[in-house]
């Protein structure tokens, strides 16, 4: 149902529009003297909040273990299909042999990425993070397909809350004391 709004009839002065124009001029004049909000971008940099969604990166845990196990959930969830993973196996001699799986290659096409953060949200290993890098560029398309080493270089090391695989290895070494 349409709602009828009662409009106050205009006074004679208001019908000339002059008071409104003067008010408008006053408002713009006040704004004229207000401090400016522009950020002088290349010289000044914005403060990046913690939950900012920048370039997706791969991270390692403080023990330098690559956290990605190439479960490919991010590849699956990625709306623009920017992620491409070649799964691989960790050799049985390696320190982290009990993790069994690690990406052989991990590519994110930054020309496709829409920074939606779904990969970070879906990651069961907390291995992919959209961190604070927001400005990337390159001279060719190939350059902007970030490979695994580039992604780890950008991601660096992030603190780990769980160390779930380390716990698992401890369990495997010491067994279950309840048994």
């Amino acid at each position: 149902m349409a709602k009828i709004v009662d409009r106050k009839p205009l006074s004679l002065l208001e019908k000339t529009n002059i008071p409104q124009i003067l008010k408008g001029l006053y408002i713009t004049l006040v704004n004229f003297f207000r401090p400016k909000v522009t950020l002088q971008y290349p010289d000044q940099r914005p403060v990046i909040p913690n939950n900012y969604r920048g370039v997706p990166t791969l991270v390692k845990d403080p023990n330098e273990r690559e956290k990605c196990v190439s479960c490919q959930l991010c590849e699956f969830v990625c709306p623009p299909k920017a992620i491409r993973i070649t799964p691989g196996t960790i050799s049985e001699e390696a320190d982290t042999a009990h993790v069994e799986k690690a990406p052989q290659e991990f590519e994110i096409n930054m020309l496709r990425c829409i920074y939606c953060g779904l990969c970070q949200e879906v990651c069961p290993e907390e291995a992919i993070f959209l961190q604070d890098i927001y400005s990337i560029n390159g001279l060719s398309r190939e350059e902007l397909v970030f490979n695994k080493s580039k992604l780890y270089e950008l991601g660096g090391v992030l603190p780990d809350k769980h160390y779930k695989w380390d716990k698992k290895r401890d369990d495997a070494l010491h067994g279950n004391e309840n048994h």
Binding site: S70, C71, Q72, E75, F76, P87, G88, T89, E100, K101
Partner: peptide, 9 residues
């Protein structure tokens, strides 16, 4: 097939 590809793809 081990660790080659996830089945949902």
């Amino acid at each position: 097939f081990r660790f080659k590809m996830r089945t949902w793809f």
